[in-house]
């Protein structure tokens, strides 16, 4: 997949975590990304302009990362959006639920830029 074609949506309720993710995207020269601070806004943004990949935090108010994944999978036109869950605390139940919903990959916090790149490439193929 060409980097220039890759459209990414980053979802996290804290600006620090958004910044840490977009920093890696900048490092990878992926220019087509948008950021959202909650799941609802991200869904609206995806509905308006789809993306190839969503990188979302798990713990967020109102709608958590897996809640967002569930909605993405159920939205017509968005079913085939790649989804990476970022979490600081992955327990077996979360992973099982993610798997059932068609989660593409999972990355633990904190991550290095190489780890995040590998995590993205595991989903979209070599950049």
């Amino acid at each position: 997949m060409k980097r220039s074609d890759l459209k990414v949506v980053v979802v996290d309720d804290t600006a620090v975590s958004r910044g840490l993710i977009t920093q890696v995207l900048d490092w990878l020269n992926i220019e087509g990304y948008r950021t959202f601070s909650d799941g609802r806004a991200a869904l609206a943004g995806l509905a308006a302009a789809p993306a190839n990949l969503v990188i979302s935090d798990y713990y967020m108010p109102e709608m958590d990362g897996l809640g967002l994944l569930e909605r993405v999978r159920k939205s017509r036109g968005l079913e085939r959006t790649g989804f990476i869950l970022v979490t600081g605390r992955a327990d077996p139940a979360m992973i099982a639920k993610g798997r059932a919903l068609g989660l593409n990959n999972l990355i633990n916090k904190p991550f290095t830029k190489e780890q995040m790149r590998n995590c993205i490439e595991a989903v979209v193929g070599p950049l």
Binding site: A15, T35, A47, A48, A49, P50
Partner: peptide, 25 residues
């Protein structure tokens, strides 16, 4: 883009242009 139909609880109509939100986090 082939816009998906409005989501049940989505507050924004689907045809609303996406605001660019990548300028500032």
């Amino acid at each position: 883009p082939a816009a998906p139909p409005p989501l049940p609880a989505s507050p924004v109509r689907a045809e609303t242009p996406a605001p660019r939100s990548d300028v500032r986090p």
